[in-house]
Design a protein around this nucleic acid. Structure first.
Lengths: 310, 310
DNA sequence: GATAACCGTGCACAATAGGTGCATGATTGA
DNA sequence: TCAATCATGCACCTATTGTGCACGGTTATC
């Protein structure tokens, strides 16, 4: 409803280059370039300036993008209200998410929607959290389930999105099956202070969460190895290279020669799983129904856990 | 910026038929029909229903149109702010107006803009007040100078428009040059109570103003003849058929065998001349400049009048 | 300081959204 | 019953808007 060119401009404002904007919106770079040129012509405003080998927004451009936040939100809100008032049905619905955790929530959501709303075209895109937000802005998806590290600066106040906490996913410790502590049910991080740790490379959000968990209990872990995928980390642990942290929702197959222990004591780290939508759209019947389904799934996951871990 | 189809829907909401919408927007009826069909498809909402040989808005449609008022206003406001912030120039500017009174204000405005902003394409459309509002909604024009009868219910609170009073245009009495009172400078309506009057047909806004003026002084005029155009009315008066009321801004050529007298006493009727713009757009530099020019013109007209008539 | 990589843009061409005009069907009023 | 009014479908056409590729300018690397 809002001109596609303005949406493109907003995406450009997020990623800064024409090429990335093209990739994100699904257009070719030439098309993005032409769209932005046309937008400037029709508004009679100069929105972009050459900057080195790229382009950047002018002050007017930034102003327009900033101001368009509330415009988009108002449209989403109006559409949601009209859908609700008229008991109308949406035809396309895009979902975004990342990691097995998100998949565990998105899969039942998509399945349920497919049965309750047979006419609805549901599309699921796998993308990391940052890209999910980009895809929301680009209107490629309408709802995203993302895994936010607890230490992240929480962007609840972003004028473009509204977020709903679904559940907190605690991190467990994984140690080799032949480790002296392997028969325990719970451990404290202090007890594992001298172990060689396996984590992700510094700079990743998981790494930030990792260190935050240890600083909370006043311990400095010795980082022995680095792994990106949970699977890799589990394999390292199974090979006796060290110990690591693993989110509760990440599956651990019994064949792995690795045991999972809950963390007791203070400083129990967790990831926060939230649903994000474009601001204003949260009143839409479809979004409401989806959030309900997601929260049911989250509740089912929570009730399957030991009481003190919820 | 807001999708043209929504604008079309809004125009339809005002005039009720596809044909009228087509005429007002400049499209063909088929195009309007197709646009509205496409709009419903893309929103997944049923906005129209068959109603006899025409169509009418559904509840959802009315809801959407009502809610879109603030959306349009916010966009206009954003565009205006961006134009001002970036010191940018607009390329097209549509003006609307009706009657010689409006023309006297619009002509100098268009002329001034043409010299101060040579790149600006100024288009002037002559249209009666109701149509001017329609044209504003349809985004065919950006500013309208309209003549509102004082008795009209004043639509200042319409969420779609913002209005600025330019000046009040008093009505004078015109009488034949050989009338006994012709040498006077001013008359009261009471003095002319027994004269045969010429006015417009009952039901017109001018007729409403006419009767309001007389009821204010407790006189019931005898309506002898009816005329639509001022020119016709002047000719009738010149022919000695009766007397009439004529706005100060309506030109009276000396060859007409008619004299113009100001009305003294209470109940001096007048028309109100106002400038109307889409809500939100009033902050735009171009609108601001235009309103300034219009007010200058109005001021010049006022200062040319006797003091007690301003 | 040459060269490669990157980024945006212009151009030829293609697809398709979106327009017009006319014919048709449905409904209402004379 | 007939004419007038209104919306819509269809055939056709236009022009907007997309793609793919080549090119020029800028930055980073060796």
């Amino acid at each position: 409803m809002i001109d596609a060119r303005l949406i493109t401009l907003r995406v450009f404002a997020r990623c800064g280059t024409i090429g990335a904007t093209a990739e994100l919106t699904g257009y070719s770079p030439s098309a993005v370039s032409a769209q932005l040129r046309e937008l400037q012509r029709m508004l009679g405003m100069q929105l972009l300036t050459k900057d080195g080998r790229g382009v950047r927004l002018t002050a007017t451009g930034r102003f327009l993008v900033a101001g368009s936040d509330s415009l988009i939100a108002e449209w989403e809100s109006l559409r949601a209200a009209a859908m609700e008032a008229g008991d109308q049905v949406q035809s396309r619905f895009g979902l975004g998410g990342f990691s097995t955790a998100a998949a565990q929530l998105l899969a039942p959501l998509a399945a349920t929607l497919r049965s309750t709303r047979p006419l609805l075209e549901v599309q699921v895109l796998e993308a990391n959290p940052a890209r999910c937000f980009d895809l929301l802005v680009a209107e490629r998806i309408d709802l995203a389930v993302i895994v936010a590290m607890q230490s992240d600066t929480y962007i609840e106040d972003d004028p473009r999105f509204e977020q709903t906490v679904l559940l907190d996913d605690p991190l467990d410790v994984i140690i080799p099956a032949d480790h002296p502590l392997a028969s325990r049910e719970t451990v404290t991080l202090e007890e594992l202070a001298s172990e060689p740790w396996i984590t992700e490379a510094a700079g990743s959000t998981y790494h930030a969460l990792f260190t935050a968990a240890f600083t909370a209990v006043g311990v400095t872990p010795r980082i022995a190895h680095e792994a990106v995928e949970w699977e890799t980390q589990i394999a390292f642990v199974g090979a006796g290279l060290g110990v690591g942290l693993l989110p509760r929702l990440a599956p651990l197959h019994s064949t792995e020669n690795v045991v999972r222990l809950r963390i007791s004591g203070k400083g129990r780290p967790s990831r926060r799983i939230v649903a994000a939508v474009r601001r204003g759209s949260i009143a839409s019947p479809l979004i409401q129904e989806s959030l309900g389904i997601l929260q049911d799934s989250a509740h089912r996951i929570l009730t399957a856990r030991p009481e003190d871990d919820r």
